[in-house]
């Protein structure tokens, strides 16, 4: 199985939440600002614990924040 391309709506959700800064979010979830930058750029896939923390901060479910980049052929392989 190929590596999944996981993307996220963190940047969008930050702006929807009173234009929260990366620094504010990093303080709320207990990581460095660089980690938030890396997550937004898709350079780092956070642990499940951090995903839940982000979900709590944004008041969303994890799948509303993180999603798999559309690669239909690969997704079909996974679901079948």
């Amino acid at each position: 199985m190929k590596k999944l391309l996981i993307n996220n709506n963190v940047r969008k959700l930050r702006f929807q939440n009173n234009e929260m800064t990366q620094k504010d979010l990093s303080v709320k979830v207990g990581v460095s600002r660089q980690t938030i930058v890396a997550i937004e750029k898709g350079q780092y896939s956070p642990t499940l614990e951090l995903c839940f923390k982000l979900a709590i901060v944004f008041n969303k479910t994890i799948d509303e924040i993180f999603f798999i980049e559309s690669n239909e052929k690969e997704n079909d392989k996974i679901t079948s």
């Binding site: 990581v31 460095s32 660089q34 980690t35 890396a38 780092y44």
Partner: peptide, 13 residues
């Protein structure tokens, strides 16, 4: 910048 940035070691680090 805010001091203390260097002290944070998170899961990515």
């Amino acid at each position: 910048e805010e001091a203390g940035v260097m002290e944070i070691v998170d899961e990515r680090d």
